[in-house]
């Protein structure tokens, strides 16, 4: 048994993890990457101003127009091109979303290391704090913060990032405890490596990077979801700035008049984008698991 096992491992022709992945997972990853590239591309384009139409280019002769070659997604109630506003809408969540991700990953890694690597009292303290954060429902907290502070989207995303810290921390802590169980960290310490080097290079870089990447993709999906939800409710990004959420909200008023595409296209984009990031995270998770198996 043991012999065949080693034999398989020594076999140089063992297929690459990517090839061993289920076909669905591969499709998910490809789709997710396409979505990610499109989102980043749209963000960069809108940043430098490469847009099909002017963002606030009102055209009162073409209000609520159906999709056409000139306006693939139609125009809104002020004659603005909806595709242009969707592209520019990436600005509403992209940078704030990155902020949320950075906060969640850095905070989570720190808390996970404090809990898993040092243990003892620091573990008790961090677990307690994380449980406190975890026990507050995310959306209730957000609405509460919005009601009190009337914050901008960056502030909101800081809160979102903070609420994600416990999830990341528990993953990192679990990984560290697993590594500790394999004498691995002790051996590194016995060799004479410093704590910082063990934490950053051996634990975080070599063993937690896949995990952090997955959390980052899921984080971006969530950032889109939350920004869209809040903007839809009127709490997030406000007109005249474009956001996917407030596009849907504005379009909603015209659905009963038969102008479905005003709300439908932005909503579809929201769905496809969130799906893309979540599926990417899921697919990568399976890919990294396959890699772990050797």
């Amino acid at each position: 048994m043991r012999h065949t096992f080693t034999q398989r491992k020594l076999d140089a022709a063992a297929p690459h993890p990517w090839k061993r992945l289920r076909r669905m997972d591969r499709a998910f990853i490809v789709y997710g990457l396409v979505v990610a590239v499109l989102v980043v591309g749209c963000y960069l384009c809108s940043l430098v101003g490469w847009l099909p139409y002017q963002l606030d280019g009102m055209d009162l002769n073409h209000m609520n127009e159906a999709p056409s070659l000139g306006h693939p997604f139609g125009t809104d109630n002020m004659g603005r091109d909806i595709l242009t506003r969707i592209i520019a809408g990436t600005q509403a969540f992209f940078l704030p979303g990155l902020l949320a991700i950075v906060i969640a990953l850095v905070g989570g890694s720190l808390a996970g290391v404090l809990g898993g690597y040092y243990g003892g009292f620091t573990d008790k303290l961090t677990s307690y704090l994380l449980n406190v954060i975890d026990s507050i429902p995310k959306f209730v907290l957000l609405l509460l913060v919005i009601a009190i502070f009337k914050p901008d989207i960056y502030f909101i995303m800081i809160i979102v990032g903070a609420t994600n810290i416990p999830t990341v921390a528990s993953f990192i802590k679990g990984k560290i405890l697993f590594l500790k169980g394999r004498d691995f960290i002790e051996a590194a310490a016995a060799l004479g490596l410093s704590d910082l080097r063990i934490i950053f290079k051996h634990i975080l870089y070599h063993h937690c990077l896949p995990l952090l990447i997955i959390q980052a993709t899921l984080g971006m999906g969530e950032a889109i979801l939350i920004e869209a939800s809040l903007s839809y409710l009127g709490f997030g990004v406000q007109e005249p700035m474009a956001s996917w959420g407030n596009l849907v909200a504005a379009g909603n008023n015209y659905v009963l008049q038969g102008v479905f595409y005003y709300a439908a296209f932005p909503a579809l984009v929201i769905m496809l984008a969130i799906l893309g990031f979540y599926l990417l995270g899921d697919g990568l998770n399976n890919l990294f698991e396959e890699e772990e198996r050797g």
Binding site: F184, E186, A187, A188
Partner: peptide, 14 residues
């Protein structure tokens, strides 16, 4: 220096 019982202990698989 210490040699660990676990063969993989000292060897970061990555």
């Amino acid at each position: 220096q210490m040699i660990f019982q676990d063969l993989d202990a000292a060897l970061n698989p990555k």
